[in-house]
């Protein structure tokens, strides 16, 4: 039995990590279709990763040891998060290791190192990216915490598996107005956290607008591949959080192969569905000026606050 759980658990992790470039590919393809382009194949992110893995690493002469260890810290924290977030099966075997607060703070750990590396190479672009990233993260955090708070308060715990279980047993509460508002709040937050339009443009290298790309501008080769991959995993995790914390339909609750197959199918459907929505938002919105971003995030904050007030008035 233990072997089966271990194997299925590995399957779950590998699904997230292996799927991540595909989801990015799907978003890019959808955006291209919206722009009446044919776009690259949805597998292009995989080719990119392979190509980068084969390339040389160019390290700045100014860079310190932080430059070498950051890609691993970032990648590792994203993978650890994917161990804690229920994707296909609930409860996750390692749910006792960390809850949703640990997940949020692990994201922050990766960001902290990435922002430091932005300053490591003495390039002006790196500092620009770090400064913007940390500023936006500061105002994202309260909105994210409140949205999460509503879900946690409803379940009476911050344990992600408990939140998901509680919601699965009372499917009616998925359509609760407070629940939907918290989801909307988390959606806006996710756009900001994963660096999508209207907050950041993942496809640009224009110094006026870039945030995430500016921080990692000095990276190349396998290091860049790891960081890119970690960002793709981060996107999938956010989609999984949105899907499963709010609509845990079809999740497997046992480790039987049939339940797993259904769970994996449901997970894929939900994640791809959300990815299409992200692509839609990215295609129909313009990127905001940097100092308009706080206004967007205040909206997310207020949505989350409203959801909490509604929860208090209406009940779960």
């Amino acid at each position: 039995m233990a072997t089966i759980i271990l194997l299925s658990f590995l399957f779950q992790i590998i699904l997230v990590i292996a799927l991540a470039p595909l989801v990015t590919g799907i978003i890019r393809k959808t955006k291209a279709r919206f722009q009446h382009r044919r776009g690259a194949t949805v597998l292009q992110p995989y080719y990119d990763l392979v190509k980068l893995m084969r390339k040389d690493v160019v390290v700045s002469s100014v860079a310190s040891w932080l430059f070498h260890c950051t890609p691993f810290v970032v990648f590792s924290s994203m993978v650890v998060i994917s161990l804690l977030v229920p994707t296909v099966v609930t409860p996750v075997p390692l749910h006792w290791v960390g809850d949703i607060i640990a997940v949020i703070y692990l994201f922050a750990l990766g960001r902290f190192f990435m922002a430091l590396v932005g300053l490591d190479t003495a390039s002006a672009f790196g500092g620009l990216g770090s400064s913007r990233e940390m500023s936006i993260a500061s105002i994202v955090e309260p909105a994210m915490m409140l949205a999460i708070f509503t879900a946690a308060v409803t379940a009476g715990s911050t344990d992600l598996s408990v939140i998901v279980d509680r919601l699965s047993t009372t499917p009616a509460s998925m359509l609760n107005p407070s629940h939907l508002l918290a989801f909307a709040g988390l959606f806006v937050v996710s756009l900001a956290e994963t660096g999508r339009i209207p907050v950041d443009n993942p496809a640009t290298h224009l110094e006026l607008t870039m945030i995430h790309e500016a921080m990692i501008l000095e990276y190349s080769g396998p290091y860049l591949a790891l960081i890119e991959w970690a960002s793709q995993v981060k996107l999938v995790i956010f989609l999984a959080l949105m899907a499963n914390m709010f609509f845990p339909l079809g999740m497997a609750t046992t480790w039987s192969p049939s339940a797993l197959a259904v769970g994996a199918g449901a997970f894929l459907l939900k994640v791809i569905g959300l990815a299409l929505i992200v692509a839609l938002v990215e295609s129909t919105n313009a990127k905001l000026r940097l100092f308009r971003v706080p206004e967007l995030l205040v909206v997310a904050f207020i949505l989350s606050l409203l959801s909490l007030i509604l929860y208090f008035i209406v009940g779960a």
């Binding site: 993260a137 994202v140 955090e141």
Partner: peptide, 13 residues
């Protein structure tokens, strides 16, 4: 809770 989250993020910045 929200302001503790803000504090943590600003401290990191």
């Amino acid at each position: 809770v929200a302001l503790l989250a803000l504090t943590g993020a600003l401290a990191a910045a």
